[in-house]
């Protein structure tokens, strides 16, 4: 047990407890919830938000913010669909989708680093602009239909199917793979540790030789690329390149997940593990609310409340730590 707690981290323990309570509550209301099919559905639904939230974790830990992720996903979705329909190459479509995302992330970092625009404002601006581009590249501004079984496999395919077991969603496996890599990068590489340093204190990080401009370049490009990948999965699942539907509001969900997962608004703290748990929590919540027939309008209100709650908990923890620190200073 102790090893388990060590592994997930004490901060994440409250998330797990919240998840267990919620699962318990929902399960008493509806039997279908515990069916393999529903659980795998939750996994499938996690993928899109999850991919974006992983990138967002890096951004927020570096004391930045990226509001444009949903719009980037929209662009990537359309771009991928256009490539697949016009050139018939799924591989090309996927690469172009991800590439589009990375490029847009680079644009964000250039605005932030060279034009010295605050990340919130910079990505709020591109949030609007990129969405506009998504509609512009879609002929007539309408969704681009794409019927390709190989592409569809990425979105709603299942593997390890056998009798009585519907199979694990491919999209979910992609998320798991990305999360494992991201976790490793954040915990064990020079790049990852530098993200924590620059988020904790940019001046001290620069004086220790970390090039903040270069770091932002990579961080926003990765966030963009993962948003692009999320957009590709939206295309694959809906069999169409969607300029708006399916990618709107993703920024809110991803940001909520990152803060709920224990990241600090001021930067320097946060883990991929925590974010992923929070994404699972959010996906379960929304799945439960759907099963219980709660209207989407209420769900929107609930999501907003959750974001406030997540940040408020972080601030409360910070205040508590500061109090402890003050007491320690007094006792010395």
């Amino acid at each position: 047990m102790k090893r388990f707690i060590n592994y997930v981290g004490t901060e994440n323990l409250s998330l797990i407890i919240a998840l267990i309570i919620m699962v318990g509550l929902i399960a008493t209301q509806t039997e279908f919830f515990f069916s393999a099919r529903n659980i795998l559905n939750i996994g499938q639904n996690m993928a899109v938000v999850g991919l974006i939230a992983v990138g967002m974790t890096m951004v927020i830990v570096s004391a930045g913010l990226d509001i444009s992720v949903g719009s980037i996903a929209g662009c990537a979705s359309v771009a991928c669909a256009l490539i697949v329909t016009n050139y018939g190459t799924v591989f090309g479509g996927v690469i172009v989708g991800i590439g589009f995302g990375a490029l847009f992330g680079l644009i964000n970092s250039v605005i932030i680093s060279y034009l010295r625009v605050n990340p919130v404002v910079a990505t709020l601006a591109t949030f609007s602009a990129f969405r506009g581009i998504a509609f512009l590249i879609a002929p007539g501004g309408r969704p681009v239909g794409v019927l390709d079984p190989n592409l569809g496999f990425l979105g709603s395919g299942r593997i390890f199917q056998f009798e009585g077991f519907p199979g694990i969603p491919v999209a979910f496996l992609i998320l798991v793979a990305v999360a494992v890599i991201a976790h490793f990068v954040m915990t064990s590489t020079v790049f990852g540790r530098a993200i924590y340093s620059m988020g904790g204190n940019p001046v001290a990080a620069r004086l220790a030789g970390i090039n903040l401009t270069k770091m932002r370049f990579y961080i926003y490009a990765i966030s963009g690329a993962l948003s692009g990948l999320a957009g590709v999965i939206v295309t694959a699942r809906t069999s169409s390149g969607q300029p708006a539907s399916g990618t709107q509001g993703l920024e809110l969900e991803a940001i909520t997940a990152v803060f709920l997962g224990g990241a600090l608004l001021a930067g320097g703290k946060g883990t991929v593990m925590g974010t992923l748990l929070a994404v699972l929590l959010l996906a379960t919540l929304s799945n439960g609310m759907n099963l219980l027939g709660i209207a989407t309008f209420y769900q929107l209100v609930a999501k907003g409340l959750l974001l406030v709650l997540a940040v408020a908990i972080g601030q409360w923890r910070l205040a508590r730590d500061e109090k402890k620190q003050a007491k320690l200073a007094e006792s010395q």
Binding site: Y196, S197, N201, V203, A204, L264
Partner: peptide
């Protein structure tokens, strides 16, 4: 505090 350390790390 301002320039030397990352206090949260």
């Amino acid at each position: 505090k301002e320039e030397g350390l990352i206090l949260v790390r």
